[in-house]
Simulated scan of single mutants.
Amino acid sequence: MIPALILAAGSGRRMGGPKALLVLEGETLLERTVRLALAAGCSPVIAVVGDWKTGALDPTVRVIRNAEAAEGMASSIRAGIAALPGPAAAVLLLAIDQPAVDAYLLRRLLLLHAAQDGAIPVACAYGGSLGIPAIFPARLFPELLALVGDQGAKPILLRENTVGLPFPDGTRDLDTPEDLASLTR
Rank of each mutant, 00 (worst) to 15 (best):
G16T: 14
E68F: 14
A74S: 12
R13A: 12
D150H: 13
N66A: 10
R62K: 15
F136N: 11
G72A: 12
L92Q: 08
A90L: 03
L147T: 01
A56I: 11
P18C: 08
I6L: 09
W52H: 15
L109M: 04
Y104N: 04
D175V: 01
A89E: 14
D51M: 06
I2C: 00
I46R: 07
R65G: 02
L92W: 07
F167E: 04
D169Y: 07
L106R: 03
G170R: 02
A134Y: 07
G80T: 09
L183W: 13
A67R: 15
A82F: 04
T33F: 00
D117A: 02
A69N: 06
A100S: 13
A89N: 07
R13T: 13
A115V: 00
A95G: 15
A134C: 15
S43V: 05
G41D: 07
I120R: 07
G55L: 08
G80W: 10
A39T: 11
R172Y: 05
G128V: 07
A82K: 14
A146D: 15
A40G: 09
D175W: 09
A9W: 02
P18Q: 04
L165S: 02
I2P: 03
D97Y: 01
E71M: 12
L84C: 13
R159Q: 15
L110A: 04
G72T: 11
D102E: 10
V91E: 06
L105Q: 08
P177E: 01
A4K: 00
T28H: 09
L130A: 10
L145V: 03
A69H: 08
R172W: 07
A88K: 08
P177N: 02
E143F: 10
K154T: 12
I135Q: 03
P137Y: 09
A83P: 11
V45H: 11
E31I: 12
L22I: 04
G164Q: 07
P137L: 12
I77Q: 04
T176G: 09
T162N: 06
M1T: 11
P177Y: 02
D51Q: 13
R107C: 05
F136C: 09
L144G: 05
S43P: 02
I81M: 03
V148Q: 13
L38D: 05
A20E: 06
L145Q: 09
A181Y: 05
S11L: 10
Q116P: 00
L24K: 10
A39P: 05
L22Y: 01
A39D: 14
I77A: 01
L130N: 08
L147P: 01
L183Q: 11
L110S: 01
G41F: 03
E31R: 13
M1L: 06
L94V: 04
M73K: 15
G152V: 00
L30C: 12
A8C: 14
S182Y: 07
P59E: 14
P99W: 04
N66V: 11
W52G: 01
G26K: 03
D117S: 08
Y126E: 06
L30I: 13
A40H: 07
P142S: 14
R139A: 07
A138M: 05
G80H: 06
E25N: 14
V122S: 02
L21K: 03
S182F: 08
T171H: 05
A138H: 09
